[in-house]
């Protein structure tokens, strides 16, 4: 069996690629895709820790299932906002959507 830390390394690499995408991409949809990558890295960590440390308990599985819920809600609302901003301002660059002031 592959040791736990190798899984953690892969998910850390996935997370960092996601971080790069969020910081460097100027396109809203691409930023959201990178956020999905980061979420998946976290998900993989949860599953790996569940499998190696507590495989007989159901907590890890349940936690991962709730991560899917959050990921779905995030994608749905995030993309809706991007579409809405695009329709109103004809731009999908997050930095340009700066008219929301208190």
């Amino acid at each position: 069996m592959v040791p736990l830390w190798v899984f953690l390394m892969v998910s850390a690499a996935l997370f960092c690629i996601g971080v790069f995408g969020v910081l460097a991409r100027r396109n809203g949809v691409a930023v959201l895709m990178s956020v999905e990558l980061m979420l998946n890295a976290a998900l993989m960590n949860i599953v790996a820790f569940w499998r190696y440390n507590n495989p007989t308990e159901v907590n890890g599985l349940a936690f991962a299932a709730f991560v899917f819920v959050v990921a779905a809600a995030e994608a749905a609302v995030g993309l809706a906002i991007i579409i809405s901003v695009y329709r109103n301002r004809h731009s999908i660059i997050p930095e340009e959507a700066d008219t929301l002031k208190g």
Partner: peptide, 29 residues
Amino acid sequence: LFTFAVMLTRSITSDKMRFTRVWVNVISA
């Protein structure tokens, strides 16, 4: 959902502004 959103926000491929500060971000990641 992503493919629908990509199609709804069109003219994405022709965008010239794709990345910001690539090397800084590569190094920080």
